[in-house]
Design a protein around this nucleic acid. Sequence first.
DNA 1: CATGAATGAGACTTCATTCAT
DNA 2: TATGAATGAAGTCTCATTCAT
Lengths: 192, 192, 192, 192
Amino acid sequence: MQPTQRLNAVPRTHAHAGVGGLAPNTLAEEAGVSNGTVYNYFRSREEVLEAVGLELAVQLSEQILTVSEAVESGAERLSIAVRTFMNKARTDPDWTRALITVVRYAEGMRSTLATYLRADLQAGRRQGDFHYAHEEMAMSMVISATLGAMNLLVEEGEVEHADRIAAEMVLQALGVPPGEAKRIAGLPLPGE
Amino acid sequence: MQPTQRLNAVPRTHAHAGVGGLAPNTLAEEAGVSNGTVYNYFRSREEVLEAVGLELAVQLSEQILTVSEAVESGAERLSIAVRTFMNKARTDPDWTRALITVVRYAEGMRSTLATYLRADLQAGRRQGDFHYAHEEMAMSMVISATLGAMNLLVEEGEVEHADRIAAEMVLQALGVPPGEAKRIAGLPLPGE
Amino acid sequence: MQPTQRLNAVPRTHAHAGVGGLAPNTLAEEAGVSNGTVYNYFRSREEVLEAVGLELAVQLSEQILTVSEAVESGAERLSIAVRTFMNKARTDPDWTRALITVVRYAEGMRSTLATYLRADLQAGRRQGDFHYAHEEMAMSMVISATLGAMNLLVEEGEVEHADRIAAEMVLQALGVPPGEAKRIAGLPLPGE
Amino acid sequence: MQPTQRLNAVPRTHAHAGVGGLAPNTLAEEAGVSNGTVYNYFRSREEVLEAVGLELAVQLSEQILTVSEAVESGAERLSIAVRTFMNKARTDPDWTRALITVVRYAEGMRSTLATYLRADLQAGRRQGDFHYAHEEMAMSMVISATLGAMNLLVEEGEVEHADRIAAEMVLQALGVPPGEAKRIAGLPLPGE
DNA sequence: CATGAATGAGACTTCATTCAT
DNA sequence: TATGAATGAAGTCTCATTCAT
């Protein structure tokens, strides 16, 4: 087993799991190793979830960073991030279900996401686009709204332009005026 | 045991629950009945959660309806609802944790909430306050953003005027212009 | 399951087991109940062992107390106790193996045995029969020597008058002069 | 680690026959080799324990033999042995815990100890100091009483002159009259 | 109907042993 | 030969569910 590499494999079992989808046994099976092997790399279930969560977060974050590398505007960067997550939800429901499940348990994942997010929020505020009263509440709202929208997509099926709609609402929530929010959310994704 | 009535008792044990915190055993104890009795009324844990969820939703919804009875504006009604939930999170963290846990499993709960919510969203749109591109996405975003904010309050501690901040962001997300959103979110709660 | 009653059942599996013979699973099977049932009565493996140990100790202690009820002499009482344990080893090897295994883990068992024992040691000393320099060491020696002798009996097979031989050595170890030790160890067991 | 014999087909998984601190992994680490290497020399955990036990026995036996080389009296030799073991328990608790654990599993160890011991017992008997009715029982009692005393020392803490007290009791158990036992147990250890 | 002891599947974890390198 | 990652059986424990009373 090359742990980091193999654990990238998304826990597909979770697709139909309530509680057990993140059982070490299940995760081991996903990774194609036997149950005991997991404990050569992690000391407990919690550590495993943490690692899986981080991995999921890093995967997408890197993708987003690549895409928004040249973008200066915090609002645009945030829009790109939200839309990228939404598109991932459309194209990879299994990955998304794993993300949604794991995010509840993986503190490290949340802080990783928060780090990226905070930078964009602060940039957007400096640039006069965002006007929020409380940064933590703003971050919480961005994260939970996006995850909620991803969940909707995954559970209820396709919505046209779901990525733009979600980005627009998030931008508006942060104080971007409706017209401007629509414009930013409608920009072509770099590299598309 | 009169199931609906007795299950009003909030599952306090859930306070320290990871995955299984809403065990039938626990719920039975909360309700003051023995574990086996639960299965005279519900066929499975899932049904119990469903009932608990409904109960929680109805409890708060009734409270909100009472408060916003005389309010015509959909935007104001929604603001009242969001703020009432937020204030509940501040004053009853145990209840809130139960809500957050249960909402994941209780489909019926989500539809109950959605019914109330949809009415307000549609009213707000008719009245020219809300401008959303997709009703389901709008509902999902209101619910998940509010729950996310409640969770922040419960897990990370007090935030001043958390209720207004949350309501303001939700209103903005739905297309209410920033100034107007601030005004509505800042209205005194009826009955206060 | 009537726990106390059923757990009297000696873990026969232990016959060929290391630690595994005292696995809750095994003990449950011995008691004729399913594994989960054990945890309705005990909170952990340790508590189970403690209970089994106590049970074993109490079983034999009561028998010994009945036999030596009318005996005033501490030396005679101790002799009776040692011989009763030895005879138990001869007639019930399974019980004895369980005892020997459990005594290693069950603190409560050791203190129960120690309580009975200490009374006899102190009586014997008051009566001028025992002369030991350190009570804890004396108790340790009585217990370990007796268990060692029981183990010999169980693993290596019968020894004629093993009970008297063991009692004699123990009495001598405690300072009873050889002739007197032989006499006391040779007294007929009350009730025989 | 010295090669003994080659590996053959072996029955699998006695997992959790576990013995704290004497896991092959631990022993390998102690020996400064990797876990797999152990199995180039021993076929099973049991064989390893056997070897470790022998080693421990030989270590101390040689020390004792050196000390009591010039001593003719079996009783004195036995006293020296018991006291040397007791002093080892005081000065090296880790070694002692290992000994106590291993002695349960290592048949070869017990026979090695028994060989040395038997010689002293028989000498003491020939010399008119020991009077025991059954040699195996006598050996069992000497070994288990000494180990019990060592265990007491290790687990419950220091006892003054524990070595002499233990030796005295053991000698008395073997029929040495109290006064004489005290004298022998109190002799200065050769080389001290 | 209510009870609560019993059930047993399955979660988490350990560790003796194997085997490809 | 040495290595150490991988293995998987078995151990400890939880909890949703059943059932005799």
